[in-house]
């Protein structure tokens, strides 16, 4: 946003530099300024051009696919762009993407808050520093490695846990489990939780670290225990920061591709049980179907990609709005 506002400001007429500077005869500095201005403005314009190119490409190809879709794009439980007539809909993908991301959030956010509080307010410095490194290291693991680990370790080990869920919570329907490999949306949710943990943790950690010392002391002086200090001064201060950190994590979970494609066994059905295999996500479906797709099939995938693009944009926009509101409060 900063870049667009910079380019939106009225550009000085080319060649005619600001005249007061010329009168002072600081030619060397001004040449540097001009080069830098051109470079930075060029970068800003380039970014806009790329964004526009992507948006136009997505829209045009998506429009082409949608005009030939014989099903309802939003409600059809089918993805047969190569069939005659072609029928494809995003209902299953939207469900799978949102549900797996929400599961990931439900697991990752409380854990991330816990880790961030431990690092900033409980752990001795000798432990806090290495722990921060380890968390950041989680972010450096490539997503395909998470996918392999998920498929080869997590899937075979979760079956037992899911059977246990089924025994005690199967009556809810959501947590019913009927054997089979645990290549389900819930497994994806667990994997995504681990993958977004670093970003949520490190942003929360920075926010908690900035909690004003004077408010912590105010709580301490009232006779607050350590947890009450956190409750009175750290959490209220960090609340909006944690929300925006979660949104960043959500954005990442929504778009995760390789790890999901490696673990999930895709199907175009919506199961009421989150533990049973099946389902799909936008990104996973694109990665899995791209190679076998014809021209129209690719355009159909692009249409689903456009939906994901808009979804992610909305989530990021919401995160930015919360961050902006926070600025007013902390002023």
């Amino acid at each position: 946003m900063d870049i667009t506002s910079a380019t939106a400001s009225p550009p000085p007429a080319p060649g005619a530099g600001p005249s007061p500077a010329r009168q002072q005869g600081r030619a060397a500095t001004r040449a540097g300024d001009r080069v830098f201005l051109a470079l930075s403005r060029g970068s800003g314009i380039l970014l806009l051009v790329i964004m526009a190119a992507i948006a136009v490409f997505l829209t045009v190809r998506a429009a082409n696919a949608l005009s030939q879709d014989h099903g309802n794009f939003f409600t059809a439980f089918e993805w047969n762009a190569n069939a005659n007539p072609p029928v494809f809909g995003i209902a299953v993908l939207a469900f799978g993407t949102i549900v797996s991301s929400l599961i990931a959030m439900a697991i990752a956010v409380p854990v991330a808050i816990g880790i961030a509080l431990f690092i900033t307010h409980y752990a001795p410095r000798k432990l806090a520093t290495p722990l921060s490194y380890v968390i950041d290291l989680l972010a450096a693991v490539p997503s395909i490695v998470y996918g392999l680990w998920g498929a080869l370790f997590l899937v075979p080990h979760l079956g037992g846990l899911y059977s246990w869920f089924n025994d005690y919570l199967g009556w809810t329907g959501i947590l019913a489990y009927h054997d089979g490999a645990a290549r389900s949306l819930f497994t994806i949710g667990i994997l995504l939780a681990i993958m977004i943990l670093p970003i949520v943790t490190s942003v929360s950690r920075e926010v908690f670290r900035q909690a004003p010392r004077m408010h912590e002391e105010a709580a301490l002086a009232l006779g607050a225990t350590r947890w009450e200090v956190i409750r009175l001064s750290v959490l209220p201060f960090g609340r909006s920061g944690v929300i925006s950190a979660s949104m960043l994590g959500l954005g990442r979970a929504l778009g995760e591709t390789m790890a999901v494609a490696t673990v999930l066994s895709p199907s175009f059905t919506i199961s009421t049980s989150l533990l049973d295999p099946g389902g799909g996500t936008f990104a996973q479906n694109i990665a899995s179907s791209f190679k076998e797709s014809g021209e129209l099939g690719k355009d159909a995938l692009i249409a689903s990609g456009l939906v994901l693009f808009v979804l992610t944009l909305l989530v990021n926009g919401a995160a930015r709005m919360i961050i902006a509101r926070r600025k007013e409060y902390s002023a």
Binding site: P212, M214, H215, E217, A218, A219, A221, L232, S233, P236, F237, R239, Y329
Partner: peptide, 10 residues
Amino acid sequence: FQRPNPFPTM
């Protein structure tokens, strides 16, 4: 304390 420090969110 030296600087007034009411809890800002309360």
